[in-house]
């Protein structure tokens, strides 16, 4: 246990790096998910086809291969990425490709009647998506998005293999200098577990927050308040 206490500051820094990588690549993942997911649904083939290729390639190959490719192979084209950049790019694009399928699926399963109502009201496709279809699809997207984010968090450990000094990287360092394997690895296992648990809590909070009937209840409370005011 002593190694864990002695090296706590190092582990703490590693934890911060892990969180940084997760937040940056999580943000990239969301942007990629909506861009690729919506592009996939486009009726223009020159938009939907490249999106389809992107999604299949990034889902069809290993995250680790993608990360190594960005880190080791890209320099052959004269592009040398900072390890953190390569790591965040690979994670964001890879998990984004999975999340893009979530976006596509949630939107494609929207009731046809909603689109028809929009057409009947003269709403153009962009307006339909922005005001009606996407807001309605969010509740359906949240649980699978939560899974993708937990996956992303766990996969941040792979960035240690391209020399980003995250939690796993620090643990490996401490292991090789102290030889205290069990305590170190158990500690970071627990840390990762706590992080993914917190992510799960966040997801279910968001789910409750965005649930359709929740909004209805809020509106009802507003109503009854107004009635009370009216009665007074």
């Amino acid at each position: 246990m002593s190694a864990v206490i002695d090296y706590a500051p190092l582990l703490w820094q590693g934890l911060l790096t892990t969180i940084l990588v997760a937040v940056l690549s999580g943000a990239l993942c969301l942007v990629v998910a909506f861009a690729a997911g919506l592009a996939r649904l486009s009726s223009h083939r020159f938009i939907s086809w490249p999106a389809g290729v992107f999604i299949e390639v990034f889902r069809g190959t290993s995250l680790l291969v993608q990360m190594f490719w960005l880190f080791f192979a890209l320099p052959f084209f004269g592009i040398q990425l900072h390890p953190l950049t390569a790591a965040v790019l690979a994670l964001g694009l890879n998990e984004g490709a999975y999340a893009a399928e979530v976006v596509r699926g949630a939107i494609a399963s929207r009731a046809k009647g909603q689109t028809e109502a929009c057409i009947a009201l003269g709403m153009e496709p962009a307006l339909r998506l922005r005001r009606i279809i996407i807001p309605q699809s969010i509740p359906a997207m949240l649980p699978p998005f939560g899974n993708v984010m937990v996956d992303l968090l766990k996969n941040t450990s792979l960035v240690s293999l391209v020399t980003v000094a995250d939690l796993t990287f620090r643990a490996q360092m401490i292991r090789s200098s102290t030889g205290q394997t069990t305590a170190i690895f158990l500690t970071i296992l627990v840390l990762y577990f706590v992080l993914s648990y917190l992510l799960t809590l966040l997801t279910s909070w968001l789910e409750r927050r965005f649930a359709l009937d929740r909004r209805a209840l809020a509106a009802q409370r507003k109503d009854s308040k107004m009635m009370k005011v009216g009665a007074a």
């Binding site: 450990s157 796993t168 643990a171 690895f185 296992l189 577990f193 993914s196």
Partner: peptide, 21 residues
């Protein structure tokens, strides 16, 4: 739940470095 909440890589390290001890 624990296995699902922790990285495969770290689990692999555990088996590879911890168990032999």
């Amino acid at each position: 739940v624990f296995v699902r909440g922790t990285p495969l890589l770290v689990q692999a390290y555990c088996a590879f470095f911890v168990l032999p001890a």
